[in-house]
Design a protein around this nucleic acid. Sequence first.
DNA 1: TTTTCATGGTCTTATTTTAAGACCATCTCG
DNA 2: CGAGATGGTCTTAAAATAAGACCATGAAAA
Lengths: 150, 150
Amino acid sequence: MVKRVSLSQAACPVARALDVIGDWWSLLIIRDALEGVRRFGAFQAGLGIAKGMLATRLRDLVEDGILEIAPASDGSAYSEYVLTAKGRELHLVVAALRQWGEAALYAPGEDHSVLVDRTRGQKVARLALQAADGRTLQWNETRVRHVAAV
Amino acid sequence: MVKRVSLSQAACPVARALDVIGDWWSLLIIRDALEGVRRFGAFQAGLGIAKGMLATRLRDLVEDGILEIAPASDGSAYSEYVLTAKGRELHLVVAALRQWGEAALYAPGEDHSVLVDRTRGQKVARLALQAADGRTLQWNETRVRHVAAV
DNA sequence: TTTTCATGGTCTTATTTTAAGACCATCTCG
DNA sequence: CGAGATGGTCTTAAAATAAGACCATGAAAA
């Protein structure tokens, strides 16, 4: 029996991305980190995750260069987990998931949190795929160009 | 001991979305479905997934209204799995993952598949968050407005 | 300074999920 | 009809998860 399949060498960026952040908790941790959560205890309280799971997830995310450990910003001797530049770029993935969830998984009238423009408090516009020339592309107006097998 | 935690009733759309598609294989299945894969055997061959896993994943995705079973388009007695409207909307999530993977997980010069405009074959533009008035928003120019606890 | 509590983990255990393949029923086609 | 393709189910062993006991250190109160 082998370990869980690894996609870290896949030629498809989607597969490779899921290999890193495609598990249950990682994107939730990143979501919280994007909102400013930094301390172990804060992640644990916000997510309701078991401590052991959180510890391994944080370790993995640090190993993958998505989080980094920094001295606590409040001057105490504890440390904090902060997103790296690579990790911050995941905000679009989180936003896409959020918009899909809002549209597809809530009954009309059911309440949920909302991503807003920080300065004006207005809801962020829906994401859309655009061609190089700026045309908006629907799901069936794109295709994937695969690389030749090695 | 309880089952794996369920987030299906979360007030955060990100959590609820991950509850549905946040496992290892679902988004890869959806990625392939977006590229036109429809048959059980085609999914299995493309993903290298165990048959049992694929069967349960497909069943779950159908239950969640992301895929639906249709008669085979080639006239045979077999059936096919096709994306529903709800499932097709996930193309933005897949695109966001793809763009992040391309930027963050490949060494310079390393080859990967690319999402292109179907009519012109040009690479799709990078996604970006926009405010209601069209301004582009960086990761730190947004915040999440939470709902009041019930 | 001693004592107490908060913080940030590790380790153990029971349960669930996953990977792999054996097995089987139905369909297609020669 | 018979052989192989197709689309599954079932079994089994290994790995991941959930929950909490336990522990070391830092912070803070007495």
